[in-house]
């Protein structure tokens, strides 16, 4: 199953990234930064394929955390990478569903979500730890 998922994703990687990019292009988080968006999506998609092939969620988590660390503001980085993972997750599951059908398809989707969940929670940990070490700005806004 792991090889099958990785192969399906690899076969459709260009379409997955193109669809994800189209959904994110209008977002303020990536305004004027299309090259960064394309590069980050490509990095995460490649890591997702590696993670799927070897059944190692850490591959994706490491790539997501590296992208998050690259941002000067950990919480802004969290938001940007979180969005990338959200959309990549949706597009990858859709791609899988087109090819892997029935109960096998459900299992494949669940496995894919099993790779993405730890990456998303790891990002939140990164934001929390970095911020507790030294918040970039004072003050807190609540209730939005």
């Amino acid at each position: 199953m792991a090889d099958r998922i990785a192969q399906v994703l690899a076969d459709q990687i260009e379409a997955i990234c193109a669809n994800a990019s189209a959904r994110l292009t209008g977002r303020a988080e990536f305004a004027g930064d299309q090259r960064h968006l394309a590069a980050a999506l490509s990095t995460l998609a490649a890591a997702l394929i590696d993670a799927a092939r070897d059944d190692q969620p850490e591959r994706l988590s490491d790539a997501a955390l590296a992208l998050g660390r690259d941002d000067g503001d950990p919480c802004r980085g969290y938001g940007r990478v979180q969005l990338l993972l959200d959309v990549l997750c949706s597009e990858s599951v859709e791609a899988l569903r087109r090819v892997v059908l029935g109960s096998e398809g459900k299992e494949a989707s669940a496995r894919l979500r099993g790779l993405l969940g730890p990456a998303m929670l790891g990002l939140a940990d990164l934001c929390r730890q970095t911020d507790q070490a030294g918040p970039p700005e004072a003050g807190a806004e609540r209730g939005s």
């Binding site: 969290y78 938001g79 979180q82 998303m120 934001c127 807190a140 806004e141």
Partner: peptide, 15 residues
């Protein structure tokens, strides 16, 4: 980013 920071540092697992 501000509400995200507040939520996570106050103990939310995700935002």
């Amino acid at each position: 980013p501000t509400t995200c920071r507040t939520a996570l540092t106050e103990g939310a697992s995700a935002y």
